[in-house]
Design a protein around this nucleic acid. Sequence first.
RNA 1: GGUGGGGUUCCCGAGCGGCCAAAGGGAUCAGACUGUAAAUCUGACGGCAAACGCCUUCGGAGGUUCGAAUCCUCCCCCCACCA
Length: 388
Amino acid sequence: MSYSFQFTVEARDAGSLARAGTLVTAHGVVPTPIFMPVGTRGTVKAVAPDDLAALGAKVILGNTYHLMLRPGQDLVARLGGLHRFMGWSGPILTDSGGYQVFSLAKLRKLTEEGVAFQSTYDGSRVFMTPERSIEVQAALGVDIMMCLDECTGYPATRREAETSMELTHRWAGRCREAWQRGEGDRVLFGISQGGFYPDLRKRSAEAIAELDFPGQAVGGLALGEPMEERLAALEAAREAVDERKPMYLMGLGLPEDIIEGIRRGADMFDCVVPTRNGRNGQFFTRLGRLVIRNARYREDPRPVDEACGCYTCRTFSRAYLRHLFQNAEPLAMRLSAIHNLRYYLDLVGGAREALLKGAFSGYYTEFYENLRRGREEEGLSSSDAGQL
RNA sequence: GGUGGGGUUCCCGAGCGGCCAAAGGGAUCAGACUGUAAAUCUGACGGCAAACGCCUUCGGAGGUUCGAAUCCUCCCCCCACCA
């Protein structure tokens, strides 16, 4: 293989599938488990690349659908590729546009050949195929490309889930073909689906494993299903995933999803929650979620999280942050993104450290113990649905 | 002093005899958000009640009317222009 990509497992938890490892990409080394901030349009909303670096972010996401439409992959390529264009020199992973097949369901038509989207920017018709997605991702010059897939949705009948899954498999094969015709350092990850039928989940992961991608993702989770079904689907998929390869749990999630994902062997995570919910005034802490606009923080001089070392917590009070949100000040978005991303990065970083020390089960227990304390003593919101 | 226009629920502001506890916006309060069409969206917003509903409210006091935020009289206050 001509690319520099490689994945090494360094430590495993004795009591679960959790593991710590290292991912080597053309643009840098990534310790796992890792959380990847989402930068859909070539920017992680409200933060600059130096903020991300300071937070300890190692890989970030971009989005094929959005960047293809604006500003267009050719323009990005002419300006030196996505890394240079957006000023981020670390690894970049792009979602294929597969999530938009789901989230923009009302604005697209699906066929065997591909997806006809009605552009969310100007309404024009654009056609996305598996080959096209790979071509665009390659032109962007990213480190990790994703196959075009279809998220099944919830609920879905078994028949729907199976039909959708099989389309995703055929598209994975086409993406793989398109990728192999290319060159360079970029790698392609396959994505398994299967809805919320554990046997389909397993079959899908097997089918994707068969195609022998450098990494494997589990997609189509957190689509409205209850936690038990989510975890059952993940466990079923995990059974068939090649464990020598990095496993990417797409789109997850809340802190509870991440800790449960790690426990079930996932190495990579991404989610818009820390940035989006942050922009909407929700701060994540070890003790749970804090809605900064709530009247109870009006004169609260404490930082969001006393134990957090981020710039926001080192510098500002809850009262000040509430004031910024009450007035829709732009700084509110940056400060919340900084805090929430730091929380997520610390969460996975802490898990990694614990794994390297053989202390993951304690870390896991403490995670829920903290949330329980936060609920009972501080009245913060959280969920313990995942603790089994 | 004269003429004209106004005073509506926290604020702005519609309503101009019954369908009005009173449009709409803001503020406030609460909630949602999972590979980002999201600095977005939803709900509450006079009081009591689970609910039927009851009570208090449209500057003040009287009055007309089956019925008044809406009509009449007087009073108080604000704005504009003219003296």
